[in-house]
Design a protein around this nucleic acid. Sequence first.
RNA 1: GCCGGUGUGUCGGAAUUGGCAGACGAGGCAGACUCAAAAUCUGUUGCGGGCAACCGCGUAUGGGUUCAAGUCCCAUCACCGGCACCA
Length: 805
Amino acid sequence: MASGYNHKLIEGKWQKVWDDNKAFAATNDFSKPKYYALVEFPYPSGQGLHVGHPRPYTALDIVARKRRMQGYNVLYPMGWDAFGLPTENYAIKNKIHPKEVTKTNVARFKEQLHSLGYSFDWDREINTTDSDYYKWTQWIFLKLFKEGLAYKKEMPINWCTSCKVGLANEEVVNGVCERCGSEVVRKVKSEWMLKITEYADKLIEGLDGVDYIERVKVSQKNWIGRSTGAEVDFAIKGKEEKLRIYTTRCDTLFGVTYMVVSPEHPYLDQFKSEIKNWDEIVAYREQASKKSDFERAELAKDKTGVCIDGLTAVNPVNGKEVPIWVSDYVLMSYGTGAIMAVPAHDERDWEFAKKFGLPIIQVVAKDGEEVDVNEAAFTDVATGVLVNSDFINGLEVKDAKTKMIEFLEEKGIGQAKVNYKLRDWVFSRQRYWGEPIPIVECEKCGFVPISEDELPLLLPEVDSYEPTDNGESPLAAMTDWVNTTCPCCGGPAKRETDTMPQWAGSSWYFLRYTDPTNKEALAGKEALKYWLPVDWYNGGMEHTTLHLLYSRFWHKFLYDQGVVPTSEPYQKRTSHGMILGENGEKMSKSRGNVVNPDDIVRDYGADTLRTYEMFIGAFDLSASWSEDGVKGCRRFLERVWKLQDIVTDEDGFSKDMETKMHQTIKKVSSDFESLKYNTAIAAMMSLVNDFYKKNTVTKDEFKTLIVMLNPVAPHITEELWSLKNYGGYVYEQTWPEYDEAKTVESTVEIAVQINGKTRATVAIAKDADRDSVISIAKETLGDRLTGNIIKEIYVPGKIVNIVAK
RNA sequence: GCCGGUGUGUCGGAAUUGGCAGACGAGGCAGACUCAAAAUCUGUUGCGGGCAACCGCGUAUGGGUUCAAGUCCCAUCACCGGCACCA
């Protein structure tokens, strides 16, 4: 009898063997086929690893280990996205340098990941806060700046009146400061921006050539929010200036009954003298500017606004005069900051018109049916047909749009225009713990980039990490660092004191892994050419819109610069579901349902944790933790362990197990590729159950099981392999092959139905012909088959259905 | 409100994409081992009826297509996640 399965004795031992052997290092042999598997690198928080982390890491560890056994040169790296607010806040609170906090947290994370037996190539570990790393983050920024894609702009920020600090949106909870609970207002500050909007079309088009799960593609497209419409110039009565608006429904131009401009619209100030109710307008504008984003959202339903007394717009298609209103439901940041209002065919305009008693004119009718636009706006484009609209009457919406645009362009009063919801990326943070922005401001030369050979621009040591009273970054207080000379004219200049956001370092990290120690470039050309694109990238749904979009943007920019060889960074993108607490709620300290992976590793072992997290349910859906489920997986591994007592010396698969073996290899092989880890494990459990039913396993059957199980449970399988003296290591073995012909049983059980209801099952030879199967089926049914047979259906290998009346 | 996702035993979840619903795991029940418990092993386990072979009902709800529907179509409901007036 073998001694019991003791994970504590074997897991550390094998982790050391893998480290000593450098078992999982990617080689620089670029002639081998490559496979680049990537998981999102974690932010090393003070809480340590969460049980949610191992889910994606194990999934791609399985893929990476399997690919190595299939002969690929695999790159499966890990690193640390270590800049960020929580570290800085912790540093402020505890008066420890963020660098020290990061170091401690990274050490803890690394130890925890190590204890789970991942096959990461630790020689390629990176950290976004290393100056050797952020040198290249800064280098990319300089490139962007030189290409005109980085610019400064006045932007409103969230400002805590009590802490006197700018806050990220995530720090504003219900309109108040997360930390002190005081009021948060908007304050205008000059910020660095990146022109991601310039890449909007490329970011949409690029999605066609990549293999992302559908919902990721959909949310990327929605976030970019491309809409095709038209800009139209409305005359302002008695003025030279035109009021330019953006619309996606230029077909409804004949239904315009009023106009709306946003409270920030420049015409308000420009035509101040003509506006008779200026005081009212100013008051409204004040009120609107005070509203936080939160309040605007809260009051979304209730429209407010003021009619401008003194300005009138003229509809360019019919010469009709309409009033101009000011309302905060029109945003300055989208389109032109002004709209034409067609209450009959837009819900927001309809609500506004109802509230202020403005006329509603129908210009689109539903396909032959009456619609009462006084009851609700009619917005259906698919069935709409134009009415009351002069030269476009009777046209469908789509054709009416085309014709109207032709008309507008011909008359010079408007043109087709594409707009995006996507905003440029606010790239400044008034914080210490981030990459310094390598720009100086010279009185004479303006913003000047520092020279590339001065990179990295090191983050200087400061006395305090607290932001300053006026909302500047702590770096602003360091006068001897801030005051410098202009690289251009040599005159006095000041350094930029804002730092980059956390998204910066994570926008290109996958490039650095390919060649992490390169001093001359962010990575060598040859390495980039070989390893890119990432073959499979897995990460959370929460990063679909920001991180994924930002990194695709940088990558596309670098591609245009000739720095990287592919236009897309990631060939395949998948997302995992969250792991919830036992009660089905999100794990959190306050709910008291947090599970610490260290405890599971200690009590059950890393292999059990890995197996359980893969078995817990469909990979892309969220799943609730269950300690009983963990025990079940441990029990399975114990049963695998004890198989060693019934293994024979026999080669090959035994006759009665042959089909099952081939079926299992096939199932496990394909399930590992398609995120169906749970059913792959179920198949191996079922195989083990069959071994016990027979109470014997041949050497080759056992070896095959060990190799297939190895990616999931690497420690126990190495131990069993070594105990049995099979020679070498499991990780060096070749992934088992199956024979398609041998996955089919020689006799199959098929269902026999009468009128679609199963009445019996019969065993038939797999190649039995239709007639004989049907006659066997009828024989089996005997008396139960009554009435006239109308139809006989035979689906080979599956079912016989006799239709009788 | 819009976008996306999900509804299957007591629970987590399977179902080769239209072909025997409930694989695998958990839990329950019964038994073996044990002084006993735990662990382990064996059997059983969707609901209802029948001694039984069997029969009826069952995949959120209502309808439809089909020889055959968890799977396809139409409508409805519930829950989860994201976004908030994007003209």
